[in-house]
């Protein structure tokens, strides 16, 4: 895979470039993973009950959880819309790039992180799994998705560095 690059253009927009077929696949998985119903393990990880107080937890389930779910949905839909605007990268042959407004960065960060956590919860990924060298990852679907968690971490890191 190529090295992704996230840079700020003179007009303030952000440009994610150097996207080869592998990266295109990894980025496209983000909104795919987040659309639709999630298994209980994912819901429990993303929306854990906040306390041991029954009233607080009830308000949480009725008011806050739906609000967060709507916000997260808007985030991954915005990322999906940006991904639909891939264009040829003039600086890197065989690669594409995406240019988007700076205020989309928060939505990308949210969606990428949510996709990583979703995969982690689906497969019950542990600290030990995450610390294994990438070359030791196997080829079954779980190992494949652990690799995707790492790939998306490198994209997320680009966005974190750009926003600090």
């Amino acid at each position: 895979m190529t090295t992704l690059e996230l840079k700020r253009l003179p007009d303030g927009r952000l440009c994610l470039g150097g996207i080869d077929d592998g990266w295109q696949w990894a980025l496209a998985r983000v909104p795919e993973l987040l659309a639709g119903d999630q298994p209980p393990a994912v819901r429990e990880r993303l929306l854990p009950e906040p306390s041991n107080n029954t009233a607080i937890n009830r308000d949480w389930r009725e008011l806050i959880a739906p609000e967060l779910q709507a916000l997260w949905k808007a985030n991954y839909e915005l990322m999906a819309a940006d991904l639909a605007r891939l264009e040829k990268d003039p600086e890197q042959p065989d690669c594409t790039r995406i240019i988007f407004p700076e205020n989309h960065a928060a939505a990308w960060i949210s969606a990428i992180n949510q996709a990583r956590l979703t995969l982690g919860a689906r497969w019950n990924v542990t600290e030990a799994d995450m610390n294994r060298p990438l070359r030791k990852l196997g080829r079954d679907p779980r190992e494949h998705d652990i690799l995707l968690i790492h790939l998306l971490a490198s994209v997320l890191q680009l966005f974190i560095e750009a926003s600090l």
């Binding site: 993303l46 906040p50 306390s51 967060l68 956590l117």
Partner: peptide, 15 residues
């Protein structure tokens, strides 16, 4: 707690 969970941090509150 709401804001931290919005960022996907696993967050709770306790008295």
């Amino acid at each position: 707690v709401r804001i931290l969970q919005q960022y996907h941090l696993w967050t709770t509150m306790e008295q």
